[in-house]
Amino acid sequence: MSSMNLRLGRTLIYTLLIGFALIYLAPLYVMLVTSLKDIEEIRSGNLIALPENINFSAWVKAWNSACTGSECEGLAPYFWNSVRIVIPAVLISTIIGACNGYVLAQWQFKGSNMLFGALLFGCFIPFQVILLPMAKLLAWLGLANTVVGLVGVHVVYGITFTTLFFRNYYVAIPNELVRAARLDGAGFFAIFWRIFLPMSTPIFVVTVIWQFTQIWNDFLFGVVYSGPGTQPITVALNNLVNTSVGGKEYNVDMAAAIIAALPTLLVYLVAGKYFVRGLTAGAVKG
């Protein structure tokens, strides 16, 4: 009887899982098939039907000739804008987070827990709250509408998270390791460089994925602090979808949305395995 029950339970669980997976994947499927149809087929055909002829013209158009407002250069220039913003922002915030985490976890000083608490508080500050003061500050620094300014905003906003990640990873590493290294003659930076960084791969992967996804997908900072030549891809996507010359080109919209999402998908596919591992790994066994 119990084995019957077990099988029944299993069947139920799998049915539910498959059902929810389908619901979750349906939009992606619709996006993908729509992006491969031509506009006639979309108007006349079924939303979920497979395309009659696979047609990449919508992708090409989305990439280099679709209009985003008055410009008609496709997403390509904005894609590279995003790359120029994301790469330095991710690297800088991750490196600062690693240093902060190392200090907060292994070199406790008076008030270090207070400082950590205050940093944590930063995780809960909503974007909207800092919009105006940050705009003022950037203008005052002469960084308004620049890539550098945008990178700076993302770095500052990201440090709270990256510090939290690294601090929690390093706090599980026994303090005796630092003590041993100090007696061995290693200083603050030598210990960080020679001992802590080499065992930080999992948490680096987690932090990089997290920061990359956050910054690449950011829309609000992008739309507020960027200028005409520095808009990230999310802003361009929004403009593209909202600009209609003649009829609405759903296939181009879909292709553009997928292009905008591809890099984060790619990062996740390449490093997702380490992401889960890094989140669950407490410390390095030794």
């Binding site: 005796e176 290693a186 065992m199």
Partner: peptide, 30 residues
């Protein structure tokens, strides 16, 4: 580091990413 002492810890505190040889060399290299 300038007291000219060496210590053996309860948890051994070996550097987990280094080989045994590098563990022994570390203090001398520093």
């Amino acid at each position: 580091k300038d007291r000219d002492i060496a210590m053996v810890f309860q948890s051994y505190a070996l550097y987990p990413t280094m080989t045994v040889e590098r563990n022994i060399r570390f203090g001398l290299e520093m």
